[in-house]
Design a protein around this nucleic acid. Structure first.
Length: 688
RNA sequence: GGCGAGGUAGCUCAGUUGGUUAGAGCGCGAGAUUCAUAACCUCGAGGUCACGGGUUCAAAUCCCGUCCUCGCUACCA
């Protein structure tokens, strides 16, 4: 394994249009924080980088929706998220933001450098522009008459009536759906990164860890899921990607005639890592280039699996194209964390939000860290349950670690007035089921951490506490005190040494607990060095400890009932606020012919997961209707099911099957249900 | 549909290049103990390793097929 001089560690930049939930933390932030804290205990030169990703269309859309400015949106969430990280003890060296001037400058310079190297392909095209809204229109924001079937309401990408795929320029009499006015054609120029030119070296780099035969990293250290996903992309073939967009909110394209254009996410967000490092370096009298451009620096990106392609293919391509930058040595991406059996959903407010957790359990931050680490989605999706939160607190933290510290502190005060009178060199260390020294438990935890196996590492730490509990029970100092005071003192000294070890070992995982242990054991924070782990002489003979204090409080069911309930009720508030469909006239409603029918046959549409081909009896005729409900129902259950059908919807070919109408469904979150007459009514009856 | 990752004890997960009775934590049962937040400690019961074939002296581990979960993608709103 290569020996690096310094480390540059990043966690995915959270997008500043919403708060953070526990899934984010378990995925990209906690593992990085643990790893960084571990490296810092090893006295490594490391910088831990993060910040808010504040540019892009989603921010402007959200701003419009909330009637606020984009700046207000990003300010709000940048502040919330920054505080959440601080409260959680996720200890970035800098939490920067991509709306900063330094970032704009950095991203802009980066673009220019690539531009000057001539790596971009420049393409000019004519696109529709809405003069009132002062923006170019995406295809689906343009309506017009279909040149093929004369449908007056065809969209810029496709005609819904004849199913023909279109380009906006094909439309007759186009209208902007934003202003409802005719858009004008304007020339717009964009720059593209020809990713396909990078396929060859990317494949070599990912598969062998080498570039032009020179070793960069060991691919065996990369996670299977990460490599698999990347190679899958390479096998599909890479395509050029546009690196600019017509948009007002972001980093302006630094070229003449590029007004109203900003850098697209590829050349914006990841550059945020670099600009953040620059700011940190400026604040701390460091040289940022060492962390990004020196071969002896190890660059690691901690992310969730949704970000793999971005960090393993596109960003490396951008870094290498520039020429001066190092590439990531590893991208230890995690999978997703589910919540009580369901996917976490931001839009449905189905999540445990970090800022709310902090309000509800301000003294249980480390319990959360412990729990998220023990359930970290390292190799597959994992599960957050409140019952498990309770169990981990009571059965592991209270029972094993808290109990150990408490019994040692209590015994020491009871028998020796809080003074550790024992002598480490008199202890029979062989009686403890622990191997001291560099190759013992220290290396177990270390090896797990170096492989990004955080749950295993944490369990190894707890094993140290387990061994100490066993030692205490075996040696029975509460009996020994009656016959041999010296031996009793030695036993407690041995336990104190183990606790001192745990104070260091647990620190990356639970920094607040480690701090409490320092206080209870009255330790000097100078001992907090990884090189001390494995030592049995951290605590000096005659050391006085403080009064016992509980590290963790036992919790009961009532403390989590509210949390469980909140998930259910919050989930029911779905979409209530988003009912913003414009009002229509009665005449418009009357245009719709909705009738009751009964499904006679149902079969899957070939090569489509979601589609069913249904034969529906409408009383006077049987129609074929294609409906995207395959994921929600069992085919065999459908025949006989009554449904409501919009019968005069223009027929449309879907996956080669002509669909004559639309089944109406009630939708709630991920659940779909048919709209049917309560008491049954004959097929063909009209709904009005 | 294509591709990727998974499917191992009640729960959450380990199982390296195929090799003796498949492991850990928690939960559960029993015992022992009382310094400790009824915590700790010991012992134990739980697994046809998704399913069906195949290769091999030997397969959770390799090959083929099927089913299920998650992600990307296509198609779909």
């Amino acid at each position: 394994m290569k020996n690096y001089k310094r480390y540059t560690i990043t966690s995915a930049l959270p997008y500043a249009n919403g708060p953070l939930h526990v899934g984010h933390i378990a995925g990209a932030y906690l593992p990085a924080d643990i790893f960084v804290r571990y490296l810092k205990l090893k006295e490594k030169d490391v910088v831990f980088i993060c910040g808010s990703d504040e540019n892009g269309a989603a921010i402007t859309i959200q701003a419009k929706k909330e009637g606020r400015s984009p700046q207000e949106i990003v300010d709000t969430y940048h502040t919330i998220n920054k505080k959440a990280f601080v409260d959680l003890g996720i200890d970035f060296d800098i939490f920067h933001r991509t709306s900063s001037e330094l970032h704009h400058e950095t991203a802009s310079d980066y673009f220019l450098k690539l531009y000057e190297k001539g790596v971009f392909e420049e393409k000019t095209s004519k696109q529709y522009y809405d003069e009132e809204y002062e923006q170019f229109l995406a295809d689906r924001y343009i309506k017009g008459e279909c040149p093929n079937c004369a449908n007056p309401d065809a969209y810029g990408d496709q005609c819904e009536k004849c199913g023909r795929s279109l380009s906006p320029l094909d439309l007759i009499n186009p209208l902007s759906t934003l202003s409802e006015k005719p858009p004008v054609l304007r020339e717009t120029k964009h720059w593209y990164l020809p990713l396909q030119q990078h396929e060859k070296w990317l494949r070599e780099w990912l598969e062998t860890g080498k570039i032009d035969g020179v070793e960069q990293h060991d691919p065996a250290e990369w996670k299977k899921n990460v490599l698999g996903q990347c190679l899958s992309w390479l096998n599909d073939g890479l395509h050029e990607r546009s690196v600019t967009r017509d948009l007002s909110w972001g980093v302006n394209v630094p070229l003449e005639g590029a007004e109203g254009k900003v850098l697209y996410v590829w050349l914006d967000a990841p550059i945020g890592y670099i600009s953040a490092t620059k700011q940190w370096a400026a604040d701390n009298a460091k040289d940022w280039k060492l962390y990004w451009q020196d071969e002896e620096s190890k660059l690691l990106h901690f992310i969730g699996k949704d970000n793999i392609v971005f960090h393993c293919i596109i960003f490396p391509a951008i870094l290498k194209t520039h020429g001066d930058y190092i590439l990531p040595a590893n991208v230890p991406a995690n999978e997703f964390m589910n919540l009580e059996g369901n996917k976490i959903s931001t839009s449905r407010n189905y999540a445990v939000w970090v800022h709310e957790f902090i309000d509800d359990f301000p003294d249980k931050i480390d319990v959360l860290r412990y729990m998220l680490c023990a359930n970290m989605p390292e190799t597959k999706d994992s599960e957050f349950t409140w019952d498990d939160f309770l169990a981990k607190n009571n059965n592991e933290l209270v029972a094993i670690l808290g109990n150990l510290v408490n019994r040692v502190a209590v015994l020491t005060h009871k028998y020796f007035d809080g003074v550790l009178n024992g002598e480490s060199n008199r202890v029979d260390w062989g009686k403890i089921d622990l191997e001291f020294g560099k190759d013992g438990f220290a290396s177990k935890v270390e090896n797990s951490l170096e492989q990004y196996r955080f749950r295993e590492a944490l369990n190894e730490v707890m094993n140290v506490a387990r061994a100490a509990n066993k030692y205490l029970t075996d040696e029975e100092p509460w009996k020994r005190i009656k016959v041999n005071e010296e031996e009793t003192a030695d036993i407690l000294m041995a336990c104190a040494q183990i606790i001192a070890n745990i104070t260091i070992l647990i620190r990356p995982f639970m920094p607040f607990t480690s701090e409490k242990m320092i206080e209870i054991m009255n330790l000097d924070s100078d001992i907090l060095k990884w090189s001390n782990v494995g030592s049995n002489s951290i605590v000096k003979n005659g050391h006085r400890i403080n009064k016992a204090e509980l590290l963790f409080e036992k919790m009961d069911e009532t403390m989590i009932e509210e949390q469980k309930a909140k998930l259910v009720t919050d989930n029911l508030e779905v979409d209530a606020a988003t009912n913003t469909v414009p009002e229509i006239s009665f005449d418009e409603f009357q245009k719709m012919d909705i009738r009751i029918g009964t499904i006679k046959e149902a079969e899957k549409v070939e090569k489509a997961d979601k589609l069913l081909k249904l034969k529906v009896d409408l009383g006077t005729e049987v129609r074929t209707i294609v409906s995207g409900i395959a994921m929600h129902f069992n085919i065999d259950d459908l025949p006989g099911q009554q449904v409501s059908v919009l019968t005069n919807l223009a027929p449309r070919k879907i996956r080669g099957v002509l669909s004559q109408g639309m089944i109406l469904m009630a939708e709630h979150g991920d659940t779909l249900d048919f709209i049917v007459p309560k008491n049954g009514i004959s097929d063909g009856s009209k709904v009005s």
